[in-house]
Write a protein that binds this DNA or RNA. Sequence first.
DNA 1: AGAAGGACCAGTGGTCCGTA
DNA 2: AGAAGGACCAGTGGTCCGTA
Lengths: 232, 232
Amino acid sequence: MVTGKKQAKKGGAARKGKKARRKRELRPLDVLEDEGDEDGGCASESTESSAGGGGGGGGGERQREHPFVVTEPGEVARAKKNGLDYLFHLYEQCRVFLLQVQSIAKLGGHKAPTKVTNQVFRYAKKCGASYINKPKMRHYVHCYALHCLDEEASNALRRAYKARGENVGAWRQACYAPLVEIAARHGFDVDAVFAAHPRLAIWYVPTRLRQLCHQARGCGSHAAALPPPPMF
Amino acid sequence: MVTGKKQAKKGGAARKGKKARRKRELRPLDVLEDEGDEDGGCASESTESSAGGGGGGGGGERQREHPFVVTEPGEVARAKKNGLDYLFHLYEQCRVFLLQVQSIAKLGGHKAPTKVTNQVFRYAKKCGASYINKPKMRHYVHCYALHCLDEEASNALRRAYKARGENVGAWRQACYAPLVEIAARHGFDVDAVFAAHPRLAIWYVPTRLRQLCHQARGCGSHAAALPPPPMF
DNA sequence: AGAAGGACCAGTGGTCCGTA
DNA sequence: AGAAGGACCAGTGGTCCGTA
C-alpha cells in the first residue's frame, strides 16, 4: 500500500500506456548467460530438443514457438505448427521441473513449492526449455485439465473441432463447458476437482474457469449442458 | 528483476538507511476509516474487546499491546502484561478470521486462501482486531505449534521458564528444541508435521524452525536432545 | 485475423529496525 | 535491556498488449 488508495482493482482496465513498455532487444542465447547465480542451475540440462520447437537450424534471430493447431490424439502437426499432444507434453515437462525444484529445495532445507510457480518457470528456462513460459502454460491449463479429467471427452472434442476446421482459440474456448459439467458433479467446487487429481493439483485453477463454475452454480441445480458460451 | 542483478539475497544485511522510513503520524481510530472499500468489510465487527489489550480508557494516543510474560497455563498476567494463553488465543482468532475470509471468497466465486495471509490480517484489522498483526503472529508461530502438537510439553516448558523467571524471548527460543525433536520423529519433515495438524496447517512454517530441522537432520541419526542453541 | 510471450503491476511473504 | 509492529523490499501471481 504505497501507491495510492484503491485503483482499478485486478483484472480491470487502467493499464494503457504506462511506463513505455520498452522491449529489450533480442539477444541470441540469452538463457545461457545468467549462470553462476546460485538458486540452482538446472540439474541435467535436458535441453529436450525434441518436438515442435521453432528456431530451425540457421541463424541468430530467436524464433517463437510455432502456433498450435487442433490435432487428433496421436496426430503430428504439419510444418510450422505444433499439435495438442505436444501442448499437453509441455504440462508434463513442467511437472517434472517442479519435482526437480522440490527435490533441490528439500535437500537444501528450503521451502518447496507445491505448484508450478515463477521459480519453476525460471528453472525450466535454465534447463534450456526456453519454449516453456508462464503466459502460455496458464492460457491452456483448463485444456490440460480436461485432458487429465476426462481423456475420452477431450479426445472427442479435439476430433470434432479438427473436423470442423476450427482454430485453436475456438477449441480452447470449447474446453470450458465440459469442465464446468465435471465441476457441477462435485458441487461446483473446481478447486476440489483440481486438488483431487495428482497431475492437476500442481496447477492454479484458472480465473476464468472459476468464474464459469461460479456462475453456473448460480443458475439453479440443472447440471448444465451449457452450449459453449458465445464470447467472453 | 527490475532493480539490479543479485543484491544481498533475502535475510542478509543491505537494508540500512533506505528510503527514510517515514512513519505516518498516528491517528486515533485509523482502522475504522477505510470502510466502503469492497474486498469485504468485517462480517460481524466482533471487536473482541476482551483479554489483555492495551489502550486503556483514556485518550487519543494509540497504545501498543502490552508485552507478553511467561505464564503458566490458566494463569492471568498481571498489570500491563499479557499471558501466553492470550497469545495462543490470538492464533485461534486468526483461524476464525481465515475461515470467514474463506467463506466470503467462496460465496463470491473467488479463490480462497488456505493459509493466514496478508488478506486475512487485513480482514482482522477491519473487524476491529487491531491487536493482531503479521510480525507478531509470525514471531511466535512455533510456540503455538508446540502448544498444538504437544500441549503437555508446552505446559511443562512454560512452568519451567516461569519458575526460572525467564523472559518471553528466552521461552520463545526454548520452544524450538522440542519441535525439532517432534520433526525428527517424522523424518525431519516439519512441513508434513504442520500439514498434518488441522490448526497448524494454516500457518507457514517459520524459516528458523525449518533451518533448525534441516541442520539437525544433517547431524546424523541421533534424534537430537539439542540443548537450546546459545544465540542466533 | 489469430496466436505466442515479454514485461508489467498490485498485492504477497518475510522480517528489519526505528520506536516506545 | 527486551519487545511490539509499521513499513519496507524482493520476488509472486496474473495477464495485457505490443509483436510477429
